[in-house]
Design a protein around this nucleic acid. Structure first.
Length: 582
RNA sequence: GCGCCCGUAGCUCAGCUGGAUAGAGCGUCGGCCUCCGGAGCCGAAGGCCAGAGGUUCGAAUCCUCUCGGGCGCGCCA
């Protein structure tokens, strides 16, 4: 509906501004907005106000000219110049009635558009290190990323979702080390378990399975290791590196790899299952090790080398990122010859680029914001346009149990897992709750509140609206009332204010989806659905659907069906179920 | 110290890239089913949009500064 008015207004604008060279219609989107106040009509545009100065005209005069140039349309009821120079448009009631038919004809695809048709976009999100189960913070990333992907897909983008698996590096060595130390406990080797190893019970489970499958095959001489463990003078992180080294020596490369791979597979399988149950299923799980094995890092280095962006200093290799907007240059190969995490990431992003995506969208934790400039610099150095990489930061989730703030740390094992949260509050409530707040807003997640299956959970309100329609339909079939044909129904019978308000709300859905996708703002869909459900409940309470007047009844059933369709489409975008009954 | 995010009703948050009288939920107070599901509806109270300047026809929104909160600033990931 808005798209049609947009078109009309553009026609009028180009007629009015035909002689004025500097004007470009594209600058002005969105030109048409919904009015907030019904007295201003249905739609309004401020173009006359915005163009007045540029064209050297008075806003109200200009508005009048634009209105005069507006092509005839069966959609438009009346137009007026209001206030300082607003163009207010009232559409005919039949337009809203026709929209109901369009909703029912389009079904699940109502609200979809092609505004992103020429875009191939890769959305990378969560990408948590596979060193333990996902926690509630990751849940927010998962819900946000998946919903964003849904929104982009609904607006015609070609979308590829990906999870980058950090299956190489120090943290993974520490996980393997933690597992082996638990294994050693099972063998009663009498070794202490350092506090900066991974504390979670899943580590013990993995160790137990290794014990079952391999017996004491990974036993060995632990004297040197015991000495390192007992050395409390060394700085803890440094000591941990030495512990890793000792355990690698005890096991040998081959056996350490077995423990390492068992730990990785176990944790990753858990993450995959967890996300799948949460309705989150990336098309690809991209292994950092595969990147290294394939020579992608070497390839990226060649590209950087050829543009003279690498240099040697202090025995390390540096990337000249400061030349491209970063605060300082960054090390890509350490003094000890090992490449940094940044080297992998630069190679990974280059690889995304080479796969031909027109946009790389990274969903990252707010603690990674310092990282953005250097990745962008890397891409630019390898020949990308500046806007290829788009980063959306997700602020932290602070978990409360009642008034008690909870400290979370993966290493210490003191955190609430996503799975535990889902078990307690349900997938629907969790998905909805996560995306109903802007991603750049901190989220206070009160477990006690979320756990309580009480009425203050907003997701139930939406689902209830959907179920209520289902209930009416059930009642209808029980009483042998035939379902109406939307094309034949006399929708002009829908004249009550509540019905009109509901129809207006429904007609807004396509533009809300487009807006939310453009703004990368899933919470706008959540809020829209809340408003729409409220309009429905208000209408439902004021006017009975299954009345004796057949024509009126049919019209109201069409309205109810359209409402159900829009709410179902919206909930689906958010990854929330639309139940027939509660 | 420097950088990024944020500050809107008692609480939790929206606010459509600068529009007309700033909106919801929860909480508080008062009403509504002999009627399709009361997980609902209707109404009331509640605001110096942290503060101060600036930009312009017009600012919660853009710019600068101050105050307050969060997060970064490794040859960690």
């Amino acid at each position: 509906m808005r798209a049609q008015l947009d078109f009309l207004l553009n026609e009028a604008l180009s007629a009015v501004t035909a002689g004025a060279g500097s004007f470009e219609p594209g600058d002005l989107d969105p030109q048409i907005e919904r009015t907030r106040d019904a007295r201003h009509g249905d739609f309004t545009s401020n173009v006359a106000l915005r163009l007045a100065k540029k064209l050297g005209a008075k806003p109200r005069d200009l508005a009048g000219q634009i209105i005069a140039a507006l092509p005839e349309s069966p959609l438009v009821d009346s137009t007026e110049v209001a206030g300082a120079g607003f163009i207010n448009i009232r559409v005919v009631p039949a337009a809203y009635q026709q929209e109901l038919r369009i909703i029912l004809e389009s079904g699940p695809s109502y609200g979809c558009s092609e505004i992103g048709a020429d875009q191939r976009i890769i959305v990378e999100y969560v990408s948590a290190n596979p060193t333990g189960p996902l926690h509630v913070g990751h849940g927010r990333h998962a819900a946000f990323g998946a919903t964003l992907a849904n929104l982009l897909r609904a607006t015609g983008h070609e979308v590829h979702e990906e999870y980058y698996v950090n299956d190489a590096g120090r943290q993974m060595d520490i996980l393997a080390t933690s597992v082996w130390l638990r294994y050693a406990e099972l063998l009663e080797k009498g070794l202490p378990f350092p506090s900066n190893c991974y504390q979670g019970d899943y580590v013990i489970d993995i160790a137990a399975r290794i014990r079952r499958e391999h017996g004491d095959a990974f036993d060995g001489d632990t004297n040197a290791l015991a000495a390192v463990l007992a050395d409390t003078d060394t700085e803890p992180e440094q000591r941990l590196d030495r512990i890793v080294t000792e355990i690698k020596a005890i096991l040998g490369e081959r056996n350490f790899a077995i423990v390492f791979d068992a730990a990785l597979a176990s944790v990753l399988d858990d993450i995959k299952a967890d996300l799948a149950e949460f309705g989150v299923a990336p098309q690809n799980w991209y292994s950092e090790r595969s990147l290294v094995d394939r020579g992608a890092i070497a390839h990226a280095f060649e590209l950087l080398e050829s543009s003279n962006m690498l240099y040697a200093k202090d025995g390390a290799t540096w990337f000249r990122s400061s030349a491209l907007g970063d605060e300082k240059d960054r090390v890509v190969v350490r003094e000890n010859g090992v490449t940094t995490y940044f080297a992998s990431d630069i190679a990974y992003h280059n690889e995304k680029r080479e796969r031909g995506f027109t946009r790389l969208l990274d969903v990252l934790g707010a603690d990674h914001h310092g990282y953005v400039a250097r990745v962008r610099a890397g891409l630019e150095a390898m020949g990308s346009p500046q806007d290829l990489l788009e980063v959306r930061l997700v602020q932290f989730v602070t978990l409360y149990r009642g008034n008690q703030k909870m400290q979370m740390s993966t290493r210490s094992g003191e955190y609430v897992t996503l799975r535990a949260l889902r078990d307690e509050v349900g997938n629907d409530a969790a998905r909805f709750f996560y995306v109903s707040r802007s991603n750049d807003q901190h989220l206070d997640f009160d477990l006690e509140l979320a756990k309580s299956h009480s009425n203050d959970n907003p997701v139930y309100y939406l689902q209830y609206a959907h179920a209520r329609v289902a209930s009416v339909l059930k009642r209808m079939s029980e009483e042998g009332i035939p379902g109406p044909d939307p094309q034949m129904a006399e929708l002009s019978r829908l004249v009550e204010p509540e019905e009109h308000a509901l129809m207006v709300a429904l007609s807004r859905y396509p533009e809300q989806v487009a807006l939310a996708a453009t703004n990368r703002a899933p919470q706008q869909v959540a809020h829209y659905l809340r408003d729409t459900a409220a309009a429905f409940h208000g209408c439902y309470n004021a006017h009975r659907v299954l009345v004796d007047d057949t024509a009126l009844r049919d019209a109201r059933i069409v309205l109810a069906l359209a409402t159900q369709q829009v709410i179902r489409n919206g909930l689906t975008l958010l990854g929330v179920s639309a139940p027939e009954s509660m």
